[in-house]
Amino acid sequence: MSNQKHPENLEQDFTCSSRRGFLKATTALTAIALSPTLITKAAINHRDEKLAAFFEKIPLNIEVNGKSYKMETEPRETLLDFVRERLQLTGTKKGCDHGQCGACTVHVDGKRVNSCLTLAVMQEGKKITTIEGIGSGEKLHPMQASFLKHDGFQCGYCTPGQIMSAIACINEGHANSPSEIREFMSGNICRCGAYPNIVDAIVEVKNGGQKG
């Protein structure tokens, strides 16, 4: 947590040539990334899709499950679509695409978030953990093992999100009783209705002193 106060002491100056949207403004604004729509539009008008695609994308450095990726992303690409469609990490699920179900839950720098409501480009320099990144070597993560043991799933579709959320729930210190677990797992919908088994699975991991 930062203790800095506003307004900071900033000496950057500000100039802007808006011919390319944010483009010229960038250097002066200490901004880090950009995407010039006007150029894109020009490119589209000339039916030059390769050029358009080039300008629509922004470089992205991101670490996913311990692996560094240097890629490019369209600003509108969500983190969810990025991991599923670009990295083929399809364990993270799309259940509503609007932050209303929790199936897309991943950890960003250790915190659980809905990957459908954040942009990939916003994760520059961050560490993402998905369901594929939590087991170690040849052992399931204790939470995965506990879900298996307690039959904490049926169709399996919400399961990766439940597990990622469950690990965070314990790490956040919100798994001190079944009722607290229920409240702090309520962002993960399970339509098959595995809820009681999921709570049992989390209680066991919590009582086992397991940490994410």
Partner: peptide, 30 residues
């Protein structure tokens, strides 16, 4: 496919806001 810019300072941000009246700030994004 909107333009995207990542700001580092408050001062620059309010300058950008003054310049680009069609821009929106994004924080959590939720």
């Amino acid at each position: 496919n909107f333009d995207y810019i990542r700001m580092q300072s408050v001062k620059s941000t309010v300058k950008a806001l003054a310049k680009f009246t069609d821009a929106k700030m994004i924080a959590g994004g939720s």
